[in-house]
Design a protein around this nucleic acid. Structure first.
Length: 767
DNA sequence: CAGTGAGCGAGCTTCCGCTTGACTT
């Protein structure tokens, strides 16, 4: 018999706490929730006041039986799940499942895993808070109602296997609406004037004062006129201002900010960041990685001060506590920080080292002094124009936290080259070295990255630290959005340069619209989004979650009955579901693009059974419609009549050659040439299936055949010895076999090969 | 590996939030 059993959520936490509590305490973990609404059907009796049907999921059976055994062997059970809505519900489910007494089972909470905090918690136990539990039940049931009532409507009205939910549908909506802003965006160009000034006439040794004109010019003619004015002007320093300023460090990491910075500084995907952080947590290197709090424990604050003072000196230390501003934050944990702040680095994989380094620097910097900056602004006046030039420079007087860490910005483009500002005084004459007018195009709003989407969701109070990464996976797995790169397009920019009284015009090319790892909506995502905004606008409203969260808070305070709140929500919601199901039409995203220029048949695009499809003609007048799949990167929403008609030009024949027909088409894996029942891929970015010539086709075919020949080391009929990416291997019946290490492939006989294949088959079967 | 689109229709899909392994390539 054990005296005390303490149940926490995480096994890593259990291990740590057991050390603090001594031998009278055994600490075990529930591994999160142990019960949930029944997986099949709704799992809620709507008629009977939303009575939930809770079940222990199969994968939790083992954990639960172990917990039951441990509870039976202990005199006292303490429940130490996290101090938030979900943690309270876990406590309540544990009381039920372990058949404990709700009115006497001790519930304890702590925000930081230190001996002091845990001892204090043990001394101040309370009971399970049923108001908080009920607010979780309301949250859980509302999410189930929304997801399990709307999704089947999508199966009927749009496509099978689709899904909708309070969180995922808003995430998709954000991406779709951003794309539409980009589609309708009209880029405008203007001319930006930059100049370099000399402090001494005709010298090239004096420092250059780089500056930008206070005005931009719309057209090329206006820019040219201004440069002509410039060529006749005298210049002098009109004003110099020097302003001191400070910069403060960012708060320590939460899940969301860690995901954003790891994306910007380390190019980690959101899921990758969480996987690496999990490893560090399990190894005891960092505190818990799913948190919305920026709080640091007293212990950590003290240690940070010590580390900073000894490493950088006392004047670099400044103890700070950051208030969490995030909407709906529950702050059950500390911020993400190193478990031991005196370890600036850890052992582990390269990615673990990198992420730890980021966390260490961010935490330490958050406890350091402000940086002191001196900002100098120089205004340069002209004697024949009201336009002024501005030169701005910054000098860091005291680096403070910048010694360790500076936060990245989403719009980091790094084109601010920081020059040293030469010493100038008001009234000093200046001479221009060059004045340049450069054409600049206004940019559309940026597409979301995984990390910037998480940031946006957090701002809206939608989703939780434990769900950001899974939500992003879900909307990609459903095919609603896709993470993609785009090469961008070249465009010309005009440049007018004034030097030594002469104006020269040149052009430069720049690449616009280049994208890397951005979230693009897919046709099905846009169709589902439109369907939801037309029929369930209240659910996909950006403020829906914030609204219900307010009510959950009222339930938690005991001011609102949870079943009543659900009734208020469900009655009108369910009515909408029924009404939507009764509507006849399905949503296919159909667009009529026009008529075929020769036959006059209608040309349409829509979502078909196998994806987006273009159709020429219809079944009226006994006609037989023709179909063609849209290609990747084409959207139902933006495809033009001409682009749709082009799809029907494939497959096309290039004619006969040496007794076989060459046919060009576009398949699942891109454009190809089919010749003598073999396939040859066209080169990406070089060949175009619509215009590829006979000569080029033969070249591609020969190239591929030659490299295929080099691939074959030996051909024994049904068994082939081939050269692959990882060296020689065997191929038989479409299966590949590795050669034993140290084998000389050239010397293998057919018998050797048969033996290798047989022995490898055996190991495969036995495993 | 390289393409589908007639119509019928059994049985399946689905939510959010809390936690980690146990699987295979």
């Amino acid at each position: 018999m054990i005296e005390n059993l303490v149940i926490v959520e995480s096994p890593a936490k259990a291990k740590t706490i057991e050390k603090f509590l001594g031998k009278d305490f055994r600490v075990v973990s529930s591994f999160g929730h142990i019960r949930d609404l029944a997986k099949k059907n709704l799992g809620i009796d709507v008629e009977k006041n939303f009575t939930p049907n809770y079940e222990i999921p199969k994968e939790k059976a083992k954990v639960v039986s172990e917990l039951r055994k441990a509870a039976a062997e202990s005199k006292h059970v303490w429940i130490a799940s996290d101090e938030d809505r979900e943690g309270e519900a876990i406590a309540w489910h544990l009381v039920n499942v372990l058949k404990l007494d709700l009115d006497s089972t001790k519930r304890i909470v702590f925000h930081e895993i230190t001996k002091e905090a845990i001892t204090a918690a043990i001394e101040n136990p309370r009971l399970v808070d049923m108001n908080l539990v009920n607010s979780q039940q309301a949250r859980r049931i509302l999410d189930r109602l929304v997801g399990f009532e709307i999704s089947p409507v999508l199966w009927k009205k749009v496509q099978p296997s689709l899904s909708a939910g309070r969180v995922q549908s808003v995430a998709v909506r954000l991406i779709v609406e951003r794309e539409r802003e980009i589609i309708s965006f009209k880029s405008e160009s203007s001319f930006r004037i930059t100049a370099g000034f000399l402090t001494e006439k005709g010298s090239d040794t004096t420092l250059l004062l780089r500056s930008e004109a206070s005005k931009r010019f719309q057209g090329e003619n206006e820019a040219l006129e201004f440069l002509e004015v410039c060529s006749k002007s005298d210049y002098s320093v009109a004003n110099v201002t020097v302003k001191p300023g400070t910069r403060s460090p960012a708060p320590p990491f939460t899940t969301s900010t860690l995901q954003q910075e790891a994306y910007r500084k380390l190019s980690f995907s959101v899921a990758q960041t969480m996987a690496v952080a999990q490893k560090l947590y399990e190894a005891g290197r960092i505190t818990y990685m799913r948190t919305d709090s920026t709080n640091l424990s007293q212990l950590a604050l003290g240690k940070a001060k010590e580390v900073i003072s000894s490493e950088f000196g006392e004047k670099y230390s400044r103890t700070r506590q950051f208030a969490t501003k995030t909407k709906g934050a529950q702050e059950a944990h500390e911020a993400i920080r190193p478990a031991y702040l005196d370890n600036p680095s850890v052992a582990g994989s390269l990615n673990e080292k990198k992420l730890y380094d980021l966390i260490w620097k961010r935490t330490i910097a958050s406890q350091m002094a402000d940086a002191e900056i001196e900002k100098t602004t120089i205004t340069i006046g002209m004697n024949n124009s009201p336009v002024t030039f501005l030169a701005v420079g910054e000098v860091i007087k005291f680096d403070g936290f910048l010694k360790v860490y500076s936060e990245s910005n989403d719009a980091d483009n790094g084109d601010e080259d920081k020059d040293i500002i030469p010493p100038v005084k008001k009234g000093m004459p200046l001479w221009y070295e060059n004045i340049t007018a450069t054409q600049k195009y206004s940019a559309p709003p940026p597409r979301y990255t995984e990390a910037s989407l998480v940031k946006k969701l957090e701002e809206l109070g939608i989703g939780r630290p434990s769900t950001y990464a899974p939500t992003i996976s879900t909307i990609q797995n459903r095919g609603y959005v896709s993470r993609e790169d785009r090469p961008g397009e070249k465009r010309l920019i005009k440049i007018l340069a004034l030097q030594k009284g002469k104006i020269a015009a040149t052009t430069k090319t720049e690449v616009a619209g280049k994208e890397k790892s951005k979230l693009f909506p897919q046709d099905i995502g846009m169709i589902v989004n439109d369907f939801l905004t037309e029929n369930f606008i209240e659910i996909v409203d950006y403020n829906f979650t914030a609204g219900v969260e307010e009510q959950f808070d009222e339930i938690a305070l005991g001011n609102l009955k949870w079943t009543g709140m659900l009734q208020e929500f469900y009655a009108p919601f369910h009515k909408t579901v029924t009404a939507t199901l009764e509507k006849k039409e399905r949503k296919t995203g159909v667009r009529v693009l026009g008529n075929h220029p020769e036959t006059g048949e209608p040309v349409t695009v829509r979502m078909g059974r196998f994806g987006p499809v273009a159709q020429v003609g219809d079944t009226s007048n006994e006609g037989k419609p023709r179909f063609a799949s849209l290609s990747k990167n084409q959207l139902l929403e933006t495809i033009t009549l001409k682009e749709a008609l082009d799809l029907f030009r494939l497959p096309r024949s290039l004619g006969e050659h040496d007794g076989g027909e060459m046919v060009v088409g576009v398949g699942k894996f891109g454009p190809y040439i089919r010749y003598k029942s073999k396939f040859y891929s066209l080169k990406k970015g070089i060949d175009d299936p619509y215009s590829v010539t006979v000569e080029r086709a033969l070249e591609i075919i020969n190239e591929k055949n030659e490299s295929d020949q080099k691939k074959v080391i030996n051909d024994f009929g049904d068994i082939k010895l081939l050269n692959g990416r990882y060296g020689p291997y065997l191929s038989k019946d479409k299966l590949n076999y590795r050669l034993p290490k140290g084998t000389d492939a050239e010397k293998l006989t057919k018998e050797d090969c048969i033996q290798i294949i047989e022995s490898s088959d055996k190991t495969k079967k036995s495993s």
